[in-house]
């Protein structure tokens, strides 16, 4: 297996608080303008999703997701030390689920109130 290996600093933690779906995102950069911490930077390639530059400064406020008008283009991912403890038990069956599990239950599609 031939693979070019580079000297790079360790990845900042959290690694990837904001994930883009390149098929849906049109690179409009509205999320870049919404982010209070400049976690996101415009991509030099027009039409491409922003670059997640300061992943370690994400406040997980979700304003980038709220601002986006292309459903599914952008999603928030909590870092493992935060997502792993989030677990729930179905009262009727005793089944246990967690955030990030391999085979999650179907999504609950009920929107927030209001």
């Amino acid at each position: 297996m031939k693979q070019k290996v580079y000297m790079t600093p360790n990845p900042a933690v959290p690694n990837d608080p904001v994930e883009f779906d390149e098929k849906i995102c049109n690179g409009c950069n509205q999320c870049v303008e919404a982010c209070r911490n400049d976690v996101l930077m415009p991509n030099p390639e027009k039409g491409k999703p922003p670059i997640v530059l300061y992943s370690d400064e994400c406040w997980y406020c979700g304003c980038c997701v709220q601002e986006c008008n292309r459903q599914g283009a952008i999603s928030m991912v909590h870092p493992l030390n935060q997502s792993l403890p989030v677990s729930w038990k179905r009262a009727a069956t005793g089944e246990i689920f967690r955030l990030g599990m391999l085979s999650p239950p179907p999504p609950n599609t009920r929107p927030p109130s209001g």
Binding site: C61, G62, H78, K89
Partner: peptide
């Protein structure tokens, strides 16, 4: 209403948990 509208919880909690299948009508949060 509250988790769904509060600062820092609409996306971080409501959206994240419901997308992952959490249903407050059925589930108990640890």
């Amino acid at each position: 209403l509250m988790v769904g509208n509060e600062g820092k919880t609409r996306v971080a909690v409501y959206d994240t948990l419901t997308k992952a299948g959490f249903d407050p009508d059925k589930d108990m949060l640890q």
